[in-house]
Design a protein around this nucleic acid. Structure first.
Length: 596
RNA sequence: GGGGUCGUAGUUCAGCUCGGUUUAGAACGCCGGCCUGUCACGCCGGAGGGCGCGGGUUCAAAUCCCGUCGACCCCGCCA
């Protein structure tokens, strides 16, 4: 760099700077060599500025500019000039001006990059992740990371104003067998013992409430050793909150304020409060899911009453076996081809549906394989319940309720997307409340917590906790945005006796509970205040805000579906000395040749 | 653990059904030359892969078969 000092970024010069001498530093985006004149687009985090090398103005710089290649790092000194008439570039913010170089320093050369550093380039993820430092140079990635930073700052500012204190909690902590699989960390000083990386700071934040912190939050990494998805990474970030002396309404109000502030500040979007609310039951009944996308109005209708006795035996039998028949009316969907319907049937089959009944409403009649089984009263009934009109497509599934809900819930989404029913530019929040407290786990042969074991039951349901555990509703809630579950939480058990009842219901013995969560139970005995909280998937929230399909697009260094980091090649084998120090022995290792 | 899509120049993709005129193509990128108003610069010329890997069938395999590795999507799992 020599004596040069950067005076501006590549995104800020405009007509007001014409005439001033500036120094820019950045990467060479492109070069356009006209033999005489050479233009380069100089790029940094803030934008692109065109630099001109003119042999008549500065011969040496012009000569040196011939050496420039993509992604070279350079410093340029020169005078800002308004571009000649008609030569402005309206596509970039600095397009009215250019910098006429009278000094060029090549700060570093660069190998030819494996892909062009551009937003439009469609590059496969394995190449992008291997060269993530190049991928992150793309303006859209810098934008995503910048928004992420602003979001985190906004959360901190807002919650701090609301009296929340950010407290860090340990990463090297204790394994909690309930919930997801833990990442384990061997302890050198305690051979044979392991820390677990936290799935969430759940227990610590409750302890902080007992400690009287009153309002806690943390933007914190969490770790779960489960299979990955577009919206699931082994390490991800939560906005974690907990409040004392509150009920659901108090928390909703704070969270809604936070979301309003975030969308306002990040996107300039105004959203209305209070957010909609649905009980878990209502959401399942009407949308087939506990994370409904309410940006379009297609609902599941229970048409079972029409088919209790029917010539269509598939429906009749399903109902007799305790199942239901439900339908969605895909408005204007009658154009769906047989082949597409076959694909829909396959989608429904993923969730266990044995089949998919369908009716295309064309030329005033039902085109359907089941039409011949339907009585006049059944046809009239369907028309009334589903508001059937010309051009509609009716999809029906008969099975146990959970199968019907999952299958139709999925079909609702597929058809809503396919027929462009979704209002893309809206942010539709909904609270889902009154989740069941427990569900029966066939594999474990016992009830397990739907949320987690510290969730408080609704007081009026306490009396049936022993007799009808599956009927007990929890004081838990999820926040859903555009069909994505972005957060969930609950009011906690703060009384030791209620928590003990919960462990009983979960079939966790007293001494076992002591062993696993003893420190929390003990803490509850020392004057725990009523408290509750919520945690948001920060990555998911950002993905929705930035309209990204995958949370990998809002994380700097994500992992692949096999939880591998293509940049660093983690995880990798540990050498023998490390293992010895940790008193560990590896049973089997795949040889390098086997790995291909 | 299971279902699906994909893997061919640096990159994105075509070719693969139905093996043989393919010496495996295109675009972008790259290299060289020319060009004083370009900004997807233009024009001329050039280099670059043997088709993820292993095996099989065949006179002949990028094309067919088997296995395997990897990336992605989904179910299970996971809030």
């Amino acid at each position: 760099m020599g004596d040069l000092k950067r005076t501006h970024t590549c995104g800020e010069l405009n007509e007001k700077d014409v005439g001033s001498t500036v120094v820019l530093m950045g990467w060479v985006q492109t070069t356009r060599d006209h033999g005489g004149l050479i233009f380069i687009d100089l790029r940094d985090r803030e934008g692109i500025t065109q630099v001109v090398f003119n042999p008549e103005i500065h011969e040496e710089s012009h000569k040196k500019a011939h050496l420039l290649r993509s992604e070279y790092v350079v410093a340029v000194k020169g005078k800002v000039r308004k571009r000649p008439e008609g030569m402005a570039n309206p596509n970039i913010v600095t397009g009215e001006i250019e910098v006429v170089a009278d000094d060029l320093r090549i700060l570093n050369s660069a190998k030819t990059p494996p892909f062009v550093i551009e937003d439009h380039a469609q590059i496969s993820e394995n190449i992008r992740f291997r060269y993530r430092y190049l991928d992150l140079r793309r303006p859209s990635m810098i934008h995503n990371l910048t928004i992420r930073h602003l979001a985190a700052k906004c959360v901190r500012d807002f919650l701090s104003e609301q009296g929340f204190i950010e407290v860090e909690t340990p990463f090297l902590t204790k394994s909690t067998p309930e919930g997801a699989r833990d990442y384990l960390v061997p302890s050198r000083l305690n051979p044979g013992k392991f820390y677990a990386l936290p799935q969430s700071p759940q227990l610590f934040k409750q302890i902080l409430m007992v400690a009287g912190l009153d309002r806690y939050y943390q933007i914190v990494k969490c770790f779960r050793d489960e299979d990955l998805r577009a919206d699931r990474q082994p390490e991800f970030t939560q906005i974690d909150m907990e409040m004392s002396f509150i009920k659901e309404e108090d928390l909703f109000k704070v969270v809604e304020g936070l979301m309003v502030t975030l969308l306002k500040r990040l996107l300039g979007v105004e959203i209305n409060t209070p957010f909609k609310r649905l009980t878990y039951q209502e959401s399942m009944d009407r949308f087939g899911t506990d994370k409904p996308d309410l940006r379009f109005h297609m609902e599941l209708k229970d048409v079972s009453p029409l088919f209790r006795e029917s010539a269509f035996k598939v429906f009749e039998h399903a109902i007799k076996k305790g199942g239901v028949v439900k339908a969605i009316n895909v408005k204007g969907g009658a154009g769906t081809s047989r082949r597409e319907i076959d694909e829909l049937t396959q989608s429904a089959g993923q969730y266990g549906a044995q089949g998919l009944a369908w009716i295309r409403v064309l030329d005033g009649r039902f085109q359907s394989p089941i039409a011949k089984f339907l009585s006049d009263s059944e046809v009239i009934g369907l028309k009334g319940m589903l508001n059937i009109e010309e051009g509609d497509l009716i999809l029906l599934v008969a099975d146990q309720p959970n199968v019907v809900h999952q299958a139709l819930g999925q079909l609702r989404l597929i058809m809503g997307r396919r027929l462009n029913m979704i209002k893309e530019d809206t942010f539709d929040f909904v609270w889902i409340t009154n989740f069941p407290l427990l569900e029966y786990d066939e594999l474990e042969g016992r009830y397990v917590a739907v949320h987690h074991p510290f969730t408080a039951p609704m007081e009026e349901d306490l009396e049936i906790l022993k007799t009808q555990p599956e009927k007990v509703r929890a004081r838990s809630y999820d926040l859903v945005l555009n069909g994505v579950e972005i957060g969930g939480g609950s009011i906690r058990n703060y009384r030791n006796d209620v928590q003990s009842m919960m462990f009983d219901a979960l079939n966790i013995k007293q001494d076992e509970a002591r062993d696993r969560f003893g420190f929390l139970l003990e803490a509850l005995e020392f004057g725990a205040p009523p408290h509750g909280g919520i945690a948001f998937g920060f990555d998911r929230l950002l993905a929705v805000i930035l309209k990204e399909e995958s949370i990998r697009e809002v994380m700097a260094f994500p992992k692949t579906q096999k939880a591998v980091c293509l940049l660093t090649h983690a995880p990798s084998v540990a050498d023998k000395r490390q293992l010895d120090e940790l008193s560990l022995k590896i049973k089997t290792i795949k040889s390098e040749s086997e790995k291909g």
